[in-house]
């Protein structure tokens, strides 16, 4: 159906998409995880209530999340260029992807951690546990199933964003779909990229659910 050339392009595109998605998810967690934890700790009934810090993070997270990804991508081009030296290509795209995903991940982490039973936190406090111990050994450990499930959601969302970045030369499967499918009317190639994207999401979802289930000991 496809020439070898096209097939190798699709394979490469898949790898590039995976590279962008996984790398930006990783960096987005480096930013988003502490932000999410801070939101939980500083909220009014948290372990370290601090209205000031909570409000700042809350507002910043909301602002970044309100900007549509494509706009954000263009908006921060100067920043991206300053950071990686150019504004297009997979590595450059990781910058806006990370910035767009971090606040989203902060919210996901926040909601996962809020699921942890208040009574268990109280029990840990009664044993003399420090805030650090509670975050590490109670909040993150007890919420691990929810955290993994949400990480899967984050991956799929970031995968979608990465495809969108194809419109401005981001690289990967989205880029191929735009160039061949949209500009050159080669619909079959566009379909192929869509199927590959669907497969990627399916695989991620499958692995995520599997892992989450495996480490969940809350039920018999």
């Amino acid at each position: 159906m496809f020439s070898n050339e096209i097939i190798s392009m699709l394979v490469e595109g898949t790898w590039v998409t995976l590279y962008m998605t996984l790398t930006s998810t990783f960096f987005a967690y480096i930013l988003g995880l502490p932000l999410g934890i801070t939101l939980v700790l500083t909220r009014k009934d948290g372990l370290r209530p601090n209205q000031f810090i909570y409000k700042i993070i809350d507002v910043v997270v909301n602002i970044v999340r309100s900007v549509p990804f494509l706009i954000l991508l263009i908006l921060i081009i100067p920043f991206t260029r300053a950071l990686v030296g150019k504004s297009y290509g997979p590595t450059a795209t990781i910058v806006p992807l990370t910035i767009a995903a971090a606040p989203f991940i902060a919210r996901l982490v926040e909601s996962s951690l809020l699921e942890v039973d208040q009574g268990v936190i109280e029990a840990a406090q009664s044993m003399g546990a420090s805030t650090w111990h509670i975050v590490w050994k109670v909040l993150l450990a007890e919420a691990r199933t929810s955290l993994i499930i949400n990480a899967t959601i984050a991956l799929a969302t970031i995968l979608g964003y990465s495809a969108m970045s194809g419109t401005v030369g981001g690289g990967g499967l989205g880029d191929i779909a735009i160039r061949y499918g949209y500009y050159r009317y080669e619909t079959d190639i566009m379909f192929a990229t869509v199927i590959l994207l669907i497969l990627l999401v399916q695989i991620m979802q499958y692995i995520g659910t599997k892992v989450a289930k495996k480490i969940d000991k809350r039920y018999r």
Partner: peptide, 11 residues
Amino acid sequence: MIFQHFNLLMQ
């Protein structure tokens, strides 16, 4: 301290 709902770490 012990509690009505035990408050054990489920994981």
